[in-house]
């Protein structure tokens, strides 16, 4: 640890701060990375600069940040392409530096300069940065940091839209099943945000990529991994039943293929999964205009379905009045079907 850290000196201007951040990041080149000593020193320098940035953006616990300075800092960061640099250098950064960066990231994105989302606009001009963040899920060391940064980005509809449409979106179907729970659950959380935060963006995406998307989604619903099954069925009801997705939902529930998936899940060994799937299964059944093949499948399995539904209950202590009502309705609907 260098002692210059503690020296009292003239506070740097935002321009100077950005300049040193940039220089220290650039110094993390391939040459320094092979030199252990040089790398250590370079990393320390970045860490120090990030602390300065953090203090300037969010205060030091005693004094509030100076809004004027914050604004200048953000503007300078965009101008100097620091966002590109930090994303590319993220895998080499030390643990503390990553943490400070993650902390600053959300402030940076939200900060308006002359009523413009300066950083968001920068990312819009460099969309490939989002792909880089997505791909980082494959790197256990930085997955959680990049995950948080990514979720901050997709709070903005344009950025979420880009990822949905981008080729890297398909990677989520893989990432949500990564072996490490902290990483896979983080990826799932981002996946969920992508599919639920901006209703109209999602509806547009699902309309354009209906077959491809639900094809891949079926793999999640039928995954051997309990957590994947359980989360994906819950998420499906979260976005499919949103009003902007009404047309998609109507299309979905006409498909025997997906009805079968739901029926398979109704027999899952987990009661939680059974209960979640009921809330999608019921729409297939409640549809007043069921296609003939849906009716046939329901009819052929009438007895077994009725038995299953009768024994399905959210368990003691829960508020199940409405559930029971719905269940009764669905049971009646199934009983009405004659093959």
């Amino acid at each position: 640890m260098s002692f210059s850290f503690f020296k009292v000196s003239r506070p740097k201007t935002p321009q100077e701060v950005v300049k040193s951040i940039k220089e220290s990041l650039v110094a993390l080149d391939t040459k320094t990375v092979v030199e252990v000593k040089a790398l250590e020193k370079a990393l320390e320098e970045v860490e120090k600069n990030f602390v300065t940035m953090r203090t300037m953006l969010s205060g030091d616990g005693e004094s509030e940040p100076n809004l004027d300075q914050v604004s200048q800092l953000v503007e300078e960061i965009c101008k100097e392409e620091v966002l590109t640099l930090v994303i590319h250098k993220l895998p080499i950064l030390g643990w503390e530096a990553r943490k400070d960066l993650v902390h600053c990231w959300s402030i940076l994105l939200k900060q308006k300069v002359d009523s413009n989302d300066c950083c968001v606009e920068y990312i819009e001009q460099h969309f490939e940065l989002l792909d880089v963040l997505v791909v980082y899920y494959d790197n256990k060391e930085i997955a959680l940091s990049s995950g948080i940064m990514l979720r901050e980005c997709i709070k903005f509809p344009n950025l979420a839209k880009y990822i949905l449409e981008s080729a890297s979106f398909a990677l989520f179907f893989k990432f949500v099943e990564l072996p490490n729970f902290d990483v896979s659950s983080d990826a799932f959380s981002t996946f969920k945000d992508l599919l639920t935060k901006h209703g109209n963006v999602v509806a547009e995406f699902l309309t354009a990529h209906y077959d491809e998307f639900f094809d891949q989604y079926e793999n999640l619903l039928t995954s051997p991994n309990y957590v994947t099954r359980r989360q994906s069925i819950k998420l499906l009801s979260d976005f499919l039943l949103e009003s902007p997705n009404a047309q998609i939902m109507k299309r979905y529930i006409l498909e025997v293929r997906y009805l079968k998936v739901m029926m398979r899940l109704l027999t899952d060994s987990s009661k939680n999964i059974q209960l979640s799937v009921f809330h999608i299964f019921k729409i297939f059944v409640a549809n007043p205009n069921k296609p003939r093949d849906v009716k046939i499948i329901l009819g052929k399995n009438q007895e077994k379905l009725l038995g299953l539904l009768h024994s399905l209950s959210p368990g003691k202590g829960s508020e199940d009045e409405q559930f029971e009502e719905e269940k009764e309705f669905i049971i009646k609907e199934i009983e009405r079907i004659s093959v």
Binding site: V256, T267, P291, R292
Partner: peptide, 22 residues
């Protein structure tokens, strides 16, 4: 009726579907 008419189904697969041993 909030539904639009469903696509007219072509040749329906008539088969009994249920996971074996479920």
């Amino acid at each position: 009726l909030i539904y639009i008419a469903p696509r007219t189904a072509g040749v329906c697969q008539i088969w009994l579907w249920w996971p074996v041993g479920a």
